[in-house]
Design a protein around this nucleic acid. Structure first.
Lengths: 343, 343
DNA sequence: TTGTACGCGTTATCAC
DNA sequence: GTGATAACGCGTACAA
C-alpha cells in the first residue's frame, strides 16, 4: 500500500497543494467550507504529512528538546514529568531524546537542532566535559539540568541548574559523623570515569577530613557494573563485598538511594538491623526513599524547583536576557529511620 | 551563525556534492585521498548532515522503533534495555519514542514509519483498542510487547507477546486464598478506562469466585490520580483510605509492585506488621520487589524472555514468515516475605 | 573515480 | 481565498 501525499489529497479535492497545506496547518486564510472538504479527505484516507519534508521547509517551530542521559534512572522521572507539563503549558512542543551512555550529547544536540528547528535544549543528567569549540557550535539556547560540570560553559546562550554535589554529600557524611559514626563506608562509582560519583565521593572525603577521620580505601567500595550503574543489585553486591572484608562499619553512605536500598538488603541478609546495627544513608530523594521501611535518610534534591528554574532560565535566554543563567540549589538533608546515633 | 550544508563542504573542497555525499556515507567508489580531504573539512567545520533531507530521499533504513506508553513505569526499564542491546546486536538502529498517555500510539507510529523509513515497530505498554481499519494503515511489521489487547490484530504483519494478566492475577489471589486469607483487598486502577488494571482486577474477581468468597466492593480501592497512576504515593493513599474504612482485611493485592510498596508504608504507619498482621502481594516483579524488606510476593513477568521473543517475532515477520506471531508467557509466582499463612 | 541533474514532500512567497 | 512555483538539503541515477 503506497503512502498518500499532499499532492494526492489536492488532486482528490480538486484544489492546489497550497490549499491543502493551509487546511492541515490550520491557516486562517481559507474558507471553512474548503477546509472541511479537505480534512474529510485527509481523515478518510489517513493522510499523514511527512515530517521530514515539513521540517526541511519550516524555518522555525516552537519545540524544546530534552536530551537525557541515563533514562533508566528513577531520579529523572519526576523531572521529565514536570518539564513536559511546563513546556506544554507554555504552548511549546516537548521532545524527549535519549542519549546513550557512550554517545556524545552534543552530537545528538547538533543533529536535532536543525532537524527539529529547536527553540531550546535541556540536557538532563550526564557529565559535561566538551571542548569549548564544540560547544560554540550550538546555535540555540541550552540549559544543563543536574549535569555534572567541570568548567564554565562558553558562549552566551547557556545556563545550568544543579545542586552542589560535593557540598551536599559532605553535609550528609558530616551528619553521620555528628551521630557519632567514625567507621563510615561509601558505595560509589569509579572515580576514573567522569560522573556525579566523583563529586559525591569528594564530599565524603572532605567530611571525613573535617571530622578528623582518616580515609580508609578499604571502606570505599566501587560499583563495577557499567550497564546498570545505580541498580539496587549493584548496591547489594557492593555491600556484600564490604561485609566480606570483615571491616568494622557503623554507617554506610551510598551515592544514590537505589544503591542504598540494595545495601540495606545485604545488611538484612547478614542479620544486621537498620539502623540499630548499621546506619544507611542515600542521595537523591527518590519517592522510594520516603516509602521505604525504614524511610531512608537522604539528600533530597528539590526536583520541582530544579525543573522549573531550568525552564525559567531557558526561556529567559530565548527571550534575549542572558544574565544570571546559573543556579545552584541547596539539597535537603531529610532524616529518615535508616540512621541512628551511636553511643 | 549559519549552518553549513553539503554544498558548502563541496565548495570548500572543490568537489561536487555527490562526492561529499559519498564520503560521509562511506561509499566505496571514492578514493581514500578525496575522502580524507572531505572528512577533514567536515570535522573542522562541524558539518552535520540534515536528517530531514536524508530521510526524505532515503528509501530504506535499518531501524526499529520502540513506542512506549508510560515511560516512568520502572517495569519497562529492563525491557527497553534488552531490546536496545538485541536490536544493536543485529546491526539495526534503535529508536525510542515516548507516547503520551492521551496520545494515539498508531498516529505516532504512522508518522514515524515514513519519517524514519522503519523496518519494524514495537509497542511497549498501553492498551490496544484501535479500529481495525486504522491498524490496517500500518505498512511495516509491528509487535505488541506487554500491551493489553481486546481483539485480535488485523493484517498479516503483526504479533504480540505478553503474559495473561487475568490468569496470573487470579493465580496470585488464589495463592492468598490458599494461605487461608478470605478478607483480601485489592488496590487497582479504574475499571472504566482501558488498561491492564481491568484485567488484573478481573483475575482477582475470578479467584474470589473460585474460592467461594463474595466480592465486597468496599475492599476494592480504586487509585485516582491519573498523572502518576502506579506511584507509591497512590498505593500509600489507597491503603490509608482502606484502613480508614475500618473493614477487616488480612491480605492486600496491589496490581503493581510500586503500589504494593506504597501500601506497605501505610500499613507500617498504622502500626501493622507485614506479613504478621497483613499480607501484601504485588505484580510485575520489579527489581525492587526482590530487594525490598521483606521481599515482596509478586508475579514476576519474564522480562528477558518477553523482550527477546518480541524481537524474534518481529524479525520473523520482517523476514516474511507470518506464522505463530502470538506468544503468551507464564508469569512466576515468587513467594517473598510479605505474605504469610494465617491460622 | 567523479560530476550533473533531478526529485523526495512540504511550506513560503508571490500573484491573482 | 486560492493557485503556481521556488526553495529546503540531500541521495542517486546516469553520464563522463
Amino acid at each position: 500500500m503506497e503512502r498518500i501525499t499532499i499532492k494526492d489529497v489536492a488532486r482528490i479535492c480538486n484544489v492546489s497543494v497550497s490549499t491543502v497545506s493551509r487546511a492541515i496547518n490550520n491557516s486562517h486564510d481559507i474558507s471553512d467550507e474548503t477546509r472541511e472538504k479537505i480534512m474529510k479527505v485527509v481523515r478518510d484516507n489517513y493522510f499523514v504529512p511527512n515530517n521530514n519534508a515539513r521540517n526541511l521547509k519550516r524555518t522555525e517551530s516552537r519545540t524544546i528538546a530534552v536530551l537525557i542521559k541515563g533514562i533508566d534512572n528513577a531520579f529523572f522521572s519526576p523531572i521529565i514529568s514536570i518539564l513536559e507539563k511546563e513546556i506544554q503549558k507554555r504552548k511549546y512542543t516537548f521532545v524527549l531524546q535519549r542519549v546513550e551512555q557512550n554517545q556524545d550529547e552534543i552530537d545528538v544536540a547538533l543533529a536535532l537542532e536543525n532537524e527539529k528547528k529547536l527553540k531550546g535544549i535541556i540536557f538532563l543528567g550526564g557529565y559535561f566535559s566538551h571542548p569549548k569549540e564544540k560547544l560554540l557550535q550550538m546555535t540555540v539556547p541550552y540549559v544543563l539540568c543536574t549535569v555534572g560540570i567541570k568548567d564554565n560553559l562558553p558562549g552566551k546562550m547557556s545556563g545550568a541548574v544543579s545542586v552542589d554535589d560535593v557540598a551536599e554529600s559532605k553535609k550528609m557524611v558530616d551528619y553521620l559523623c555528628s551521630l557519632g559514626h567514625r567507621d563510615i563506608a561509601i558505595i560509589t562509582s569509579s572515580p576514573n570515569d567522569e560522573n556525579i560519583g566523583t563529586m559525591r565521593f569528594e564530599g565524603y572525603r572532605q567530611a571525613l577530613e573535617k571530622n578528623g577521620i582518616e580515609f580508609d580505601e578499604k571502606l570505599a567500595i566501587i560499583i563495577d557494573d557499567e550497564q546498570h550503574r545505580y541498580s539496587m543489585r549493584n548496591g547489594y553486591l557492593s555491600m556484600k563485598k564490604l561485609l566480606n572484608t570483615g571491616k568494622k562499619i557503623t554507617a554506610v553512605f551510598a551515592i544514590t538511594d537505589s544503591l542504598a536500598i540494595g545495601a540495606c538488603k545485604a545488611l538484612d541478609d547478614a542479620g544486621l538491623r537498620i539502623p540499630e546495627d548499621v546506619s544507611v544513608a542515600g542521595y537523591d530523594g527518590l519517592e522510594l526513599a520516603e516509602y521505604y521501611i525504614p524511610s531512608l535518610t537522604t539528600i533530597v534534591q528539590p526536583v520541582e524547583k530544579i525543573a522549573k528554574e531550568t525552564l525559567k532560565i531557558l526561556f529567559k535566554i530565548i527571550a534575549g536576557d542572558k544574565t544570571d543563567t546559573y543556579k545552584v540549589f541547596k539539597g535537603g538533608l531529610v532524616v529518615g529511620g535508616s540512621t541512628k546515633r551511636i553511643k
